[in-house]
Amino acid sequence: MAQLFISIIIISGILISGTSRMKILISSFAFQSLAIAVLCIGLGYTYNESHFYILALITLTIKVVAIPHIINKSIRALKVNRELNLIVNGYYSFILSSVYIIIIAVFLGRNSNLYFQTGVFLVLVGATVLVGRKKAITQMFGFLVIENGIILFEISSVKIPLILEAGMALEVLVLALIMGVIIFQINKTFDTINTDILADLKE
């Protein structure tokens, strides 16, 4: 059953890496977080540890419900539903994500488990989104996907204390809230949320 959720995470990761539609971006991020939460519950049941249940609960409340809701709201206020003129366009992002998978398979193939590899993949995808997009609201998704990857690191073997993990998850929530407000203000001041335009400030 874990294989099904791992494949959902990978499919949504590939979709996030290259899509330009905000709706697909939000829903695949929510699905990805849901799959991670279910994986956490499954692991908690297997190892009989309460730690995993708390992680699943945090993921469910913050990433499946709260953050998509906030982003949906700010998108409706900003009226952006797609992003054009990417730095790395969709086609190359998809090809790049397959290159990441090959690199992971070659270098991490034999001596680590599936969760760890998927986590590395999500961190790389998040970095691509962060670098390859121009709009602030899609760049935020880079951070969110990286955070998902870190959760997968944690449930693989690297034990991060729960307080740190909870701190990170809350940080992401605050990030989403602040970005929601700031992006709205940027839009109000500059009539765009393209981060390239922000460089025009310096005189």
């Binding site: 998809f94 090809i95 994500s97 398979a105 590899q117």
Partner: peptide, 17 residues
């Protein structure tokens, strides 16, 4: 390209991992 990326992932997962 999505399809290509998915099948590359499938091959990597079945062969190397």
């Amino acid at each position: 390209a999505v399809s290509f990326s998915l099948i590359i992932a499938a091959i990597s997962f079945s062969r190397f991992i």
